[in-house]
């Protein structure tokens, strides 16, 4: 180990400094989230004691509701995305029917369509359905937006399963639905998990869609809610609670990442490379 470190000394220097700079804004955020205004002005960069945990309580009172909204909308949308696109991915990967390639290409083509193109019409459409300012409208919009990429990755992954598995099941007279549920899904758990995380991440970060579709502040997800939250604390210049709020907004995903790290990184690289 030590020998390794010595051998790659300059590489390690380079990487450590770069990682520190990349992570510094978040380190600063966490340090500042424990400060009172007095500590903030007297020790701008350093860690100060005592740590003020009450900043977090104060911040949670304002953004707890937004976090709940994001979790609810995120989980329901991801379930919808995974269920529907796993079926579609299986169909594209393993079954034969007329027009399959055309349909598949029309799905892949969506990867090239910028989300901005559909933002205005989506707003008008959802307004037309009377779903503006509701969780349902937001969830449907998210579920549709996640389809193309998820189907694409699932198809790649299901297509690489060995054909013998399917032959055996089909000779036994298994229906396609049963083959899918009992053979494909258990084998595909890692990629399903990865895509669930990937979609949750995208939805958690999305700003424009909820900004346009939701106007009632009690239904805001965390991204839109944070803007409101920020203006509330900036006007009172309470920097501690403000940064505590930012930290809380990042915690759910950080926890998810910590618990699924290997799966997450593996899937990110395996799924997206082969285009």
């Amino acid at each position: 180990m030590i020998q390794h470190l010595r051998k790659d000394f300059w590489s390690h220097c380079f990487l450590v400094i770069l990682a520190f700079i990349a992570l510094y804004p978040f380190i600063y955020m966490i340090i500042t989230s424990f400060k009172t205004n007095g500590q903030f002005y007297s020790h701008f960069f350093g860690i100060t004691f005592p740590l003020h945990f009450e900043n977090y309580r104060l911040a949670w009172e304002s953004i707890g509701g937004y976090i709940f909204n994001s979790v609810f909308v995120g989980v329901v949308s991801v379930l919808l995305i995974i269920c529907s696109s796993a079926l579609a991915g299986y169909s594209f990967a393993r079954l034969r029917f007329l027009g399959k390639n055309f349909l598949y290409m029309s799905v892949v083509a969506l990867l090239m369509i910028p989300g901005l193109l559909t933002l205005i019409p989506l707003f008008l459409l959802i307004k037309g359905f009377g779903l503006l300012n509701s969780y349902a409208g937001l969830i449907l919009a998210f579920a549709a937006a996640g389809q193309a990429f998820t189907i694409f990755v699932f198809r790649q992954s299901f297509a690489s399963l060995p054909e013998e598995l399917f032959e055996a099941a089909r000779i036994d007279g298994c229906g396609e639905m049963r083959v899918f549920l009992q053979i494909v899904l258990p084998l595909a758990k890692p990629i399903v998990g990865t895509m669930a995380i990937w979609n949750l991440l995208t939805i958690w970060n999305e700003y424009m869609m909820p900004l346009v579709l939701i106007s009632d502040s009690s239904k805001f997800p965390i991204t839109v809610g944070l803007i409101q939250f920020k203006s509330q604390f900036v006007s009172q210049t309470l920097y501690g609670p403000m940064f505590a709020g930012y930290t809380i907004a990042s915690l759910p995903l950080l926890l998810l990442f910590i618990f699924t790290m290997r799966l997450f990184m593996k899937g990110l690289t395996s799924g997206a490379v082969k285009m």
Binding site: S84, L87, S91, F97, K100, V107, T118, L140, A144, Q147
Partner: peptide, 19 residues
């Protein structure tokens, strides 16, 4: 083809309506 198209239905309802 029956299961082929059938399994595409949920995705394509979403895609057609909202994409």
């Amino acid at each position: 083809w029956k299961s082929g198209y059938g399994m595409l239905i949920p995705s394509f309802i979403l895609l057609i309506l909202f994409m």
